[in-house]
Design a protein around this nucleic acid. Structure first.
Length: 568
DNA sequence: GCCGTTTTCGGCCCGACTGTTTTCAGTCG
């Protein structure tokens, strides 16, 4: 079981204990689940190496939960969960997953009607029977029904690349309104999470400005859910909910702090405030009812005894401790990126010509771009023979003569079933950089072994999308990242952070682990299209969530320096 | 059940919103 699966176990324990109205334990189990999700090493590895003692190092894990993790690792299940599951009908836990239904409501509904499934609840609502319960009006009924239908329709999270452009569009529209001095995309988008639940936009303005009237007229808007003085909600045509909050100047910093989140980060911040005899809320930092900070985030962090923390780090993964010690990393920025080392042209399955890619790269201010088309073995990627690649390389040589930026001859060579690289020794010397990758088809079970073998090949510089995850297909990395990263460290191989939102591989957790091991990484877009070159910002977001600095990312360096780093 | 340069016991974030509330409980972020 991987870390997320173990965390799910403890979240379910928390759900059940919440229904049973057990005090405080649910919080402890939730904290444990969070600590596990945020932990970069697989718990089974930690346990193998350091046993219970190692597990207790993880935030939120004490003696008791450590023992429970041990049981899960050794037996694949948790007898405690199985025991408490028997105490509570399963449907109650399911009900709790609905919007507007918490433990109290779920229990109340069950106790009265003894329903057995979601379908039963739907029937109940359609017959108007939920009214019989005290505290259930028409509106709540309607909203619960909507919640069920939403759940049936689709998973409620959206990809970052879907949400971010829309959020920016709305923000820009708001910025154009009179009386608006600032607007900011907050929430999980600001933290560059790979998937997001809704869009949060924070606006600095005097109250009652008719901002929302303008937003409501935008083409991307489906309907307005609610419109208030300080808080409004709308739904976009693609189903994303947008919450817009309007705050006065003196609270903009504290509101930013609050609405950027994460929730866990904020909880810690408030605890720290309390210890200092202060109170932190979205309205400001208060001492005895008097605001001592609020307009600027920096001031809030400073008065709580720490450095200002970049949005992407605010996940309660040790960033607060680092900020208190003044030891935050200086995160890599988009403007540090000097080029893209993994792009596909029309020679293989790309949709842009080399000339077009080079022109775009030049406009983006890059110093270099690598054309790394697929090798012949990759049929889906329309891989090319070495004969054609030699023609391509000639074209690159020619283009380099009158180009302002360096065009690099690359190859994305497939790692074949036997672990060898789909590239001749001669070709290895004819290209500037070799990216090797497994393209998982029906033969994914040996992917780790094959990748490890490929990394022993002295021609290989970069391993692309190192865990083989593909988001849309729900494919999480099937490869053993511990083994791959250890090998990368040993062999000096560069690991790729693939900025394509359908991959995001390495993800933030793995990239953090790689950074900690001192492995160098490269942020590539794997662009198959000119527009995909723009995905670099998402890759930088992952790197920032992984606490990476400029020195960890090779394509922040000029090409002549990269040449020295990559093993030839 | 976890955690501690304020504590090994006694805490555990805070405020808005909503419904139907006649003063507040439940849920959410």
């Amino acid at each position: 079981m991987d870390n997320n699966a173990i965390a799910d176990v403890f979240d379910e324990v928390a759900d059940i204990l919440e229904i049973e109205e057990v005090e405080w334990k649910p919080r402890a189990y939730r904290n444990a689940a969070l600590g596990i999700r945020n932990y970069s090493k697989p718990l089974s590895e930690v346990y193998k190496k350091d046993g219970i003692k190692g597990l207790k190092e993880i935030p939120g894990i004490g003696e008791n939960i450590a023992k429970k993790i041990e049981e899960i690792i050794l037996t694949g299940k948790l007898s405690y969960l199985e025991k408490i599951r028997r105490e509570i009908p399963k449907v109650i836990v399911e009900l709790m997953a609905l919007q507007h239904v918490g433990p109290k409501t779920a229990k109340k509904i069950y106790d009265k009607f003894k329903i057995k499934s979601m379908e039963d609840l739907k029937k109940l609502i359609k017959q108007g029977k939920l009214h019989e319960l005290k505290g259930f009006g028409e509106k709540l009924e309607h909203e619960i029904l909507e919640g069920i239908e939403d759940k049936e329709k689709k998973g409620k999270r959206y990809m970052l690349n879907e949400a971010l452009p829309l959020a920016e569009e709305i923000k820009n529209e708001i910025m154009r309104q009179k009386g608006v001095s600032k607007a900011l995309v907050a929430g999980s988008i600001a933290r560059m999470k790979e998937n997001i639940g809704d869009i949060d936009i924070l606006v600095e303005a005097r109250k009652s400005e008719p901002i929302m009237d303008y937003v409501a007229k935008m083409k991307i808007v489906e309907k307005v859910l609610s419109k208030g003085e300080t808080r409004s909600s709308i739904v976009l045509k693609n189903g994303i909910q947008v919450d817009v909050r309007i705050v006065p100047k003196e609270s903009f910093g504290s509101a930013t702090q609050y609405f950027v989140g994460s929730k866990e980060h904020n909880v810690r911040m408030r605890q720290i405030a309390i210890k200092k005899g202060l109170k932190l809320s979205e309205y400001g930092l208060f001492k005895g009812g008097k605001a001592i900070a609020g307009a600027k985030e920096e001031e809030i962090y400073r008065k709580l005894g720490m450095e200002w923390i970049p949005f992407e780090m605010r996940e309660e993964r040790g960033e607060i401790e680092a900020a208190q010690k003044g030891k935050l990393p200086k995160l890599v920025e988009l403007k540090d990126i000097k080029g893209d080392l993994h792009c596909h042209s029309t020679y293989s399955d790309g949709r842009a010509t080399i000339a077009q890619l080079v022109k775009s790269a030049e406009e983006m201010g890059y110093e270099y771009i690598a054309i790394a088309d697929h090798s012949e073995y990759n049929k889906i990627g329309e891989g090319i023979s070495e004969k054609i690649r030699r023609e391509e390389n000639k074209e690159i040589d020619k283009a380099n003569k009158n180009s302002n930026i360096r065009i690099i001859k690359g190859i994305e060579a497939d790692i074949k079933k036997d672990g060898t690289i789909d590239m001749s020794k001669e070709m290895a010397n004819e290209v500037d950089i070799v990216i090797a990758s497994v393209h998982i088809g029906s033969d994914e079970k040996d992917a780790t072994k094959r990748t490890l073998m490929a990394m022993d090949n002295p021609a290989v510089n970069i391993i692309a999308h190192p865990t083989g995850r593909i988001f849309e297909e729900g494919k999480e990395g099937t490869m053993d990242f511990e083994m791959i990263s250890d090998k990368a460290k040993e062999r000096g191989i560069i690991l790729e952070i693939n900025a394509n939102p359908y991959r995001f591989d390495l993800n933030d957790v793995n990239a953090y682990a790689a950074m900690k091991k001192g492995i160098k990484m490269v942020i590539d877009t794997d662009a198959h299209d000119l527009s995909e070159l723009e995905c670099m910002k998402y890759g930088v977001g992952i790197a920032r969530r992984a606490w990476c600095e400029k020195k960890d990312i090779i394509n922040t360096m000029p090409w002549n320096k990269i040449e020295k780093i990559i093993r030839r």
